[in-house]
Design a protein around this nucleic acid. Structure first.
Lengths: 136, 136
DNA sequence: CGATAAAAGATAGTATTAGTCCATAAAAAA
DNA sequence: TTTTTTATGGACTAATACTATCTTTTATCG
C-alpha cells in the first residue's frame, strides 16, 4: 500500500529537473548527487522517463536530461505510471476475473473503484509547476 | 501501491463473518470454502484478527470465529491495519528521517500527508454494517 | 477417549523491489 | 583523431516482502 522507492526517486528527479533554468540540462551525476539517489538506479529511472516521453535526453559531453513539456504539464500520475505502470489500489480493480465477480454479494469492489478514481484524480491534479526555479 | 492479498482476504473473511446470524460462529474451514481462500493462509489471518481484537475465537469441536463488535463498528481501516500495519502512502510519511527533510525545497511531503489522511478517512468510514445478513 | 477446532511457530517458494555492473554508443572538446 | 564525458541497454545480484504450507500443541465437546 505504498509508493515504490523507484517512483519516489522519479518524482524527486523530475522535480529537480523542473527547477533548472529553461534549456539547462541535468546529468545523471548532478541529479544523483543533488537528490542523493544511487547513480546507477537513477540512470535506469531517467531512461524509463525518457522512453515514456516525460524527459528528453542528450548524449555526449554536454548531454543530460530536461523535461519534454512545461513543468505544469507534467503530473505525479504521469511520472508514477511511467515507472510502476497503472495505479490500482486492489487486485480486484485491475483484473476482470476477480473474486468479487465470483460472489454476487461482494459489494466491496465498488468501494475500491471509487477510491481509486479519487486517488488518481489527486495524482493527476498534482504537477511540477509549483517548484521554485533555480536562478541563472 | 496496492492492497496486499492478505488484507483483501481479511476483508472478505470479516465481511463473511459479519453476515452470519448473531452468535453463530464461522470456522476456518467454512470461511475458507465459502470465500475460496487457501485454508492455512486464512488460519493465519483469522489468528491475527483475533489477536488484534477484531474477532473472538473459540476452540474445540463447536469452535470458530465471530466479530468482537457490531458489524457497523468494524471498519476497513481496522482490518487492514490489523493485518498489514499502519497505512502509509509513501516512505516519507512513515519515517522522520526522510529525504524530504534533507532538502528545504522538498514540498512533496505535504502532498502525501494530505492524500494519506484523506485515504485513511475513507477507509475508516467504510464498515461492515451494510452487508445482508444470512437468514437462520 | 476420540474427533474436531484453533494457536503457534517454523519453513519454503515465489515475486517484487532495489540496486549494481559492464559493455556500447554518441557527442563535444582537446 | 583521440580523449573525455555523457547516455543506452541489458544482464545480473541482493534483499525483502509476499503468499502459502507444514507441523506440533492446546482446547472443547460428545
Amino acid at each position: 500500500m505504498r509508493l515504490s522507492r523507484k517512483s519516489d526517486y522519479a518524482l524527486r528527479a523530475v522535480r529537480h529537473l523542473s527547477t533548472l533554468p529553461k534549456g539547462k540540462l541535468g546529468s545523471i551525476n548532478s541529479v544523483s548527487e543533488a537528490e542523493e539517489i544511487p547513480r546507477e538506479f537513477l540512470a535506469k529511472i531517467l531512461k524509463d522517463l525518457t522512453r515514456s516521453g516525460i524527459l528528453v535526453s542528450f548524449q555526449g559531453v554536454t548531454g543530460g536530461y530536461r523535461l519534454n513539456h512545461l513543468p505544469k504539464e507534467v503530473t505525479f500520475l504521469n511520472v508514477i505510471e511511467a515507472i510502476d505502470g497503472p495505479v490500482h489500489l486492489n487486485l480486484c480493480t485491475e483484473t476482470t476475473n476477480c473474486a468479487c465477480e465470483k460472489f454476487d454479494n461482494c459489494q466491496m469492489k465498488g468501494f475500491w473503484q471509487v477510491q481509486e478514481v479519487a486517488f488518481k484524480k489527486s495524482l493527476q491534479r498534482e504537477h511540477f509547476g509549483k517548484y521554485k526555479k533555480i536562478k541563472k
